[in-house]
Amino acid sequence: MRLRDDFVAVKVPATSANLGPGFDSLGLALNLFDEIAVHAVTGATSVVIEGEGAGSVDTGENNLVVRALRIGLDHVGAPQVGIRMHCTNRIPHGRGLGSSAAAIVAGLTLARALVGDPEVLAAGDLLQLSTDMEGHPDNVAPAILGGATVAWMDHGVAGALSVTPPEGIAPVAFIPAFELSTSKARAALPAQVPHSDAAANAGRAALLAAVLAGGQSRYVRGEADAGSGGVHELLMAGTEDRLHQEYRRGAMEPSLALVDWLREAGFAAVISGAGPTVLSLEPVPSDVREQARAAGWTVMNVPVSQAGVSVTRGRLSKEPI
Rank of each mutant, 00 (worst) to 15 (best):
R2W: 13
A9W: 14
K11T: 08
A17E: 12
L19Q: 08
L19C: 14
G20N: 12
S25T: 10
G27R: 02
L30C: 04
I36V: 15
H39M: 05
G43S: 06
E50M: 10
E50R: 13
G55M: 13
V57E: 14
G60W: 12
G60E: 08
N62C: 10
N62A: 14
N63Y: 12
V65I: 13
R70I: 07
I71K: 12
I71G: 05
H75G: 07
V76A: 08
G77T: 04
G77S: 07
G77C: 05
P79Y: 10
I83T: 14
R90Q: 13
P92T: 05
P92H: 06
G96Q: 01
G98W: 02
A102D: 13
G107C: 06
T109F: 01
R112W: 14
A113Y: 11
G116H: 09
P118G: 08
E119D: 11
V120T: 14
A123K: 05
D125S: 15
Q128W: 03
V140Y: 08
A141M: 11
L145N: 03
G147H: 11
T149E: 07
V150Y: 15
M153F: 07
D154T: 10
G156Q: 13
V157A: 06
T164G: 01
T164A: 13
A170M: 03
A170G: 07
E179D: 15
L180I: 06
R186P: 10
R186G: 03
P190L: 03
Q192H: 07
Q192W: 02
S196A: 15
A198V: 04
A200P: 00
N201F: 14
A202I: 15
A202H: 10
A210M: 13
A213R: 04
G215P: 07
Q216E: 07
G222A: 11
E223S: 12
D225H: 10
A226S: 08
S228T: 12
G230M: 08
M236K: 05
E240V: 01
L243C: 09
L243G: 01
Q245F: 08
R249H: 10
R249W: 14
G250Q: 13
G250K: 12
A251D: 05
A251T: 15
M252G: 01
A257Q: 10
A257L: 15
V259Y: 15
W261Q: 15
W261M: 07
L262W: 04
A265D: 12
A265T: 09
A268V: 09
A268D: 04
A269E: 01
G273P: 00
G273A: 09
G273N: 00
T277M: 01
P283C: 01
P283N: 08
P285H: 09
P285F: 09
E290N: 08
Q291P: 00
R293Q: 14
R293D: 02
T298W: 05
V304H: 15
S310W: 02
R313L: 13
L316I: 08
E319V: 01
